[in-house]
Deep mutational scan, measured.
Amino acid sequence: LETFPLDVLVNTAAEDLPRGVDPSRKENYLSDEDFKAVFGMTRSAFANLPLWKQQNLKKEKGLF
């Protein structure tokens, strides 16, 4: 999966995202380093959170 810089994904409308980016899964296009910096946890820890908590975190970080 291709990764993009944080500033390309945060608070970006679906139509302005790079081609192929799923707007409902912007976090998947962050590098592992950016993911950890944004969410303060690994991808696996994030995946283990309840869906509502994942969505709330994504909203807080501008990735929803």
Score class of each variant (00 low, 15 high):
Lys58Gln: 02
Ala14Tyr: 10
Gly62Leu: 05
Glu2Thr: 13
Asp16Ser: 08
Lys59Ala: 11
Leu1Glu: 11
Asp7Ala: 13
Pro50Asn: 04
Glu15Lys: 13
Glu2Cys: 15
Lys61Asn: 12
Ser31Ile: 04
Leu49Arg: 00
Asn28Gly: 05
Ser31Trp: 01
Met41Asp: 00
Phe64Thr: 14
Leu9Val: 02
Val10Phe: 06
Pro50Gln: 04
Thr42Asn: 11
Leu51Phe: 13
Val21Asp: 03
Ser44Met: 13
Lys59Pro: 00
Ala45Gln: 13
Leu49Gly: 00
Glu27Lys: 01
Pro5Gly: 07
Lys58Cys: 05
Leu6Gln: 03
Gln55Ile: 15
Arg43Glu: 01
Asn11Thr: 08
Val8Ser: 08
Leu1Trp: 15
Pro23Trp: 02
Val10Gly: 03
Lys58Glu: 02
Gly20Tyr: 08
Leu49Cys: 03
Ala45Met: 13
Glu33Tyr: 10
Asp16Phe: 09
Val21Asn: 02
Asn48Arg: 14
Phe46Asp: 00
Ser31Leu: 04
Glu27Leu: 03
Arg25Gly: 05
Leu30Ala: 01
Leu30His: 01
Val38Arg: 01
Pro23Thr: 06
Ala37Leu: 14
Lys58Ile: 06
Glu27Gly: 01
Glu60Ile: 10
Val8Ala: 10
Glu27Ala: 02
Ser24Tyr: 12
Lys36Val: 15
Glu27Pro: 02
Leu6Ser: 04
Glu60Gly: 06
Gly40Gln: 12
Asp16Ala: 10
Leu63Lys: 01
Gln55His: 11
Gln55Asn: 14
Phe46Gln: 00
Leu49Gln: 05
Lys59Cys: 12
Lys36Thr: 14
Lys26Gln: 05
Phe39Met: 07
Val8Pro: 01
Asn11Val: 07
Leu6Pro: 07
Pro18Lys: 03
Gly62Tyr: 05
Ser24Arg: 12
Val38Ile: 09
Pro5Val: 03
Ser24Trp: 11
Glu15Cys: 13
Arg43Pro: 06
Asp34His: 05
Leu9Thr: 03
Phe64Leu: 15
Arg43Gly: 01
Glu33Ala: 12
Ala47Thr: 11
Leu17Cys: 06
Tyr29Phe: 08
Val8Glu: 06
Val10His: 05
Glu27Val: 03
Thr12His: 08
Glu33Thr: 11
Lys53Gly: 06
Leu63Phe: 09
Asp32Glu: 11
Arg19Ser: 15
Thr3Lys: 09
Asp32Met: 06
Gln54Ala: 05
Lys61Tyr: 09
Phe39His: 00
Gln54Cys: 01
Phe46Tyr: 06
Glu15Phe: 03
Lys61Leu: 09
Leu17Ile: 06
Trp52Ile: 10
Ala47Arg: 13
Asn28Ala: 14
Leu30Ser: 01
Gly40Ser: 09
Leu51Gln: 11
Lys53Tyr: 12
Val10Thr: 09
Phe64Asp: 15
Phe64Ala: 15
Thr42Cys: 08
Leu57Asn: 01
Thr42Trp: 04
Leu63His: 03
Met41Leu: 07
Phe46His: 00
Leu1His: 14
Asp7Cys: 13
Asp32Ile: 07
Asn28Glu: 14
Glu2Trp: 08
Thr3Gln: 08
Leu9Tyr: 01
Asp7Asn: 11
Glu15Tyr: 02
Glu2Leu: 15
Met41Lys: 01
Phe46Ala: 00
Leu49Phe: 06
Glu33Lys: 11
Pro50Leu: 02
Lys59Tyr: 09
Tyr29Leu: 04
Ser24Asp: 14
Phe4Ile: 08
Leu51Lys: 10
Ala45Thr: 12
